[in-house]
Amino acid sequence: MSGHVRGFARFVGRTASRAWHHPIPTGKVWEQAWFIGVKAMPILLTMTAFIGSNLALQGYYAFKALGGQSLLGMFVSLAGVREMAPLMVAAMTAAKAGTEMASQLAVMRIREQIDALEVMSIDPYTWLVVPRCLGILIALPALTMMCILTLIGTAWLVTMLQLGESGPQFLHTAFGALTGQDLWIALFKAAVFGLLISLISCYCGFRSKPGPRGVGDATNAAVVTSAVVCAVVNYLISEWMYA
């Protein structure tokens, strides 16, 4: 455990120093941003659609007991934008993009392609890790914005069509409760989570043990560690920003 913490700190330090000192391969950064953004988008949007509709259902059934159906929009937009969307998007990105990074790098590691890069005096951090970190840093805030809109949109549809409440009232309370600050914090969270997911997943891939089992285990460790770290960091950011 402590070995992993130290190893991870060294990994982050190396990545940061390479990003600072070496020229950044801009083409690869955009390639990764495109890759992460486009490949993860359908899955993320589908998931947030279900999260949004579920928030509306649960909020409705909980508020009905108190006679506060009119607050549903506020509940969905606050719970959705402040906490659910950033956290769920991070978890799903860890599951989709994080596992992909980890398994790609793990396969490169066990096939000694990373050593081959070093032999050719191409720095693997500059070439493999930095583009992934910067790419996700570009892609994830944009994806989070789209997910927030999807979440509120599906919650609105469920409120109107399934629950039979007033749609305009929902939108009024939903957007009335949101402030610009909430959106900025959600974007900030997305950027932090993206950076954490990419660093953790690349680290797990780099440290992969040989064989098919090693690749599987590295991928597994990547998604679990990033999900847990994102949940904890989510609390810390909320405590810092909202308390």
Binding site: E100, S103, V107, P212, V215, G216, V223
Partner: peptide, 14 residues
Amino acid sequence: GAPGVGVAVNETVV
């Protein structure tokens, strides 16, 4: 092969 296991894990979670 080994990449296939990574793909399987990835697809499982997603």
